[in-house]
């Protein structure tokens, strides 16, 4: 994802003749699309196995809560990206930190949901629920780790104006994780 930051590229590829950014952007979008298909398969399986019914009562307050937290973290991620693009490193870092904390809060929320779940993985809804939230949480956790790396690097002044692709790409990944949840939330909690 942070493909561009590897200096080995400069000498390879067309380097100076055309910019790497559009190429990287296309690559990361294709990655998102491909990953989205995996999530789509899981969501489709959920409907295949249990129809459009919701066999268990879920903790709606918790669901709405973690959904709001994740949605809000997209805003902070957006603000961080915009700030870095305009050289406002201090604000950018603060917003990154907020994103990281909210991401962690989301993961903890999912973990809590798992601990209070009164269904088991071998139950048909449990099958869908645990594999979907588990797969998504794996992406959230890896996203948080990536964001921490970006946060630390930003502190060392690695992302001056015009060289913020690493921030942009990680923030895009974060939004992607949010988009997946945009579909998973109604699929698991509301239908």
């Amino acid at each position: 994802m942070a493909v561009a930051s590897a200096p080995a590229h400069a000498e390879h590829g067309h380097g100076s003749t055309h910019s790497r950014i559009p190429i990287n952007r296309m690559g990361i979008w294709l990655f998102f699309f491909s990953d989205a298909l995996l999530f789509a398969m899981l969501a489709a399986s959920r409907f295949y196995l249990t129809g459009t019914e919701r066999p268990h009562e879920l903790n709606q307050a918790l669901g709405l809560g973690i959904t709001s937290v994740l949605l809000l973290s997209s805003l902070t991620a957006y603000r961080a990206e915009t700030a870095f693009e305009h050289g406002n490193v201090a604000h950018g870092r603060a917003m990154l930190l907020a994103t990281i904390l909210m991401g962690a809060a989301f993961a903890i929320g999912v973990g809590f949901e798992w601990s209070i779940a009164h269904w088991v993985p071998s139950d048909p809804f449990g099958t869908a629920f645990f594999s979907m939230t588990g797969m998504h949480a794996l992406h959230v956790v890896s996203g948080v780790l990536f964001l921490i790396v970006v946060y630390v690097r930003a502190g060392k002044g690695h992302f001056p104006v015009g060289n913020t692709w690493a921030v942009t790409s990680m923030v895009m990944y974060w939004h992607f994780v949010d988009v997946v949840w945009v579909f998973f939330y109604p699929t698991l909690y509301l239908v």
Partner: peptide, 29 residues
Amino acid sequence: MAATGHNAAAEAKAQGTGLKVIAILAVLT
């Protein structure tokens, strides 16, 4: 560059867009 190239107006506009979008997202949720 970091401090001097800081285009405050453009940044404020972009940040405003973000706020509007999140507001609609919240309402939709």
